[in-house]
């Protein structure tokens, strides 16, 4: 308002009374009414510990866990069938889904149920499953031994006398169904309400990218 007190051909006093004074009043009123007007930011829900707790992909899925105890209690009376595909009797939860490797005794030792099957008549203890896996998945086990396959925890810089925190094959993969079935997943990111954002259709066709010709249809 500094500029408007000019007197020439119009009445300064009138301008003061009619414009400046009420104008300033209205302006100050606007500032008061508009006030602080802090943008509303909702409180965030705390993070679910499940979303950040380290664990292997096998997690706590117990469906295919191996039964504890002495296998000979049952298996000493049974005559083993080398062609057996479906686990029976006491193993109803075990679903074998290991690709072409669909015989129980490909991996389990046919006569020694406390061990896994090695070359010929030899056995592999359950503690070192990688030796069994290596019979088919040699390249991956080689990678695993080199540290380039599989999960690592702890330290990348191993101190003297320290062992890397490593995981064996069966700690991440279910041997009866080795593809990951990890079920714990965390939610999508969130945006403030004011953000105009296009959310993609959740069920979009996985093959659409190379099935459609026109660039428009991709969006």
């Amino acid at each position: 308002m500094g500029k408007n007190k000019k007197k020439s051909h119009f009445n300064q006093g009138e301008f003061w009374k009619k414009i400046i004074l009420p104008g300033t009043g209205i302006l100050i009123l606007i500032f008061f009414l508009w006030g602080d007007n802090k943008p509303e930011i909702p409180e965030a829900a705390p993070l679910n510990a499940e979303w950040y707790t380290p664990e292997t992909a096998r997690g706590e899925i117990l469906v295919n866990t191996v039964m504890p105890g002495n296998c000979f209690i049952c298996h000493s009376v049974q005559i083993p069938d080398p062609e057996l595909i479906r686990p029976q009797f006491a193993h109803p939860t075990v679903k074998l889904d290991h690709g072409v490797n669909d015989r129980c005794y490909n991996c389990h030792h046919i006569y020694n149920r406390d061990s896994l099957a090695g070359d010929g008549e030899t056995t592999i203890p359950f503690a070192t499953p990688e030796k069994l896996c290596a019979r088919c998945h040699g390249i991956i086990v080689r990678d695993w031994l080199a540290g380039t396959h599989g999960l690592r925890q702890g330290r990348w810089m191993i101190k003297a006398g320290e062992e890397p925190v490593n995981f064996t094959c069966t700690e991440c993969h279910d041997p009866h169904s080795p593809k990951f079935k990890y079920k714990i997943a965390a939610p999508a990111p969130t945006w403030p309400d004011k953000t105009l954002r296009k959310v993609r259709h959740p069920n979009d066709d996985p093959k659409s990218a190379y099935l459609t010709e026109s660039i428009q249809e991709r969006f």
């Binding site: 308002m1 500029k3 408007n4 000019k6 007197k7 119009f10 414009i19």
Partner: peptide, 13 residues
């Protein structure tokens, strides 16, 4: 700067 006619005063205001 301060002295002008009514239009000028209103515009500046």
């Amino acid at each position: 700067i301060l002295i002008g006619n009514r239009t000028y005063a209103l515009w500046m205001f």
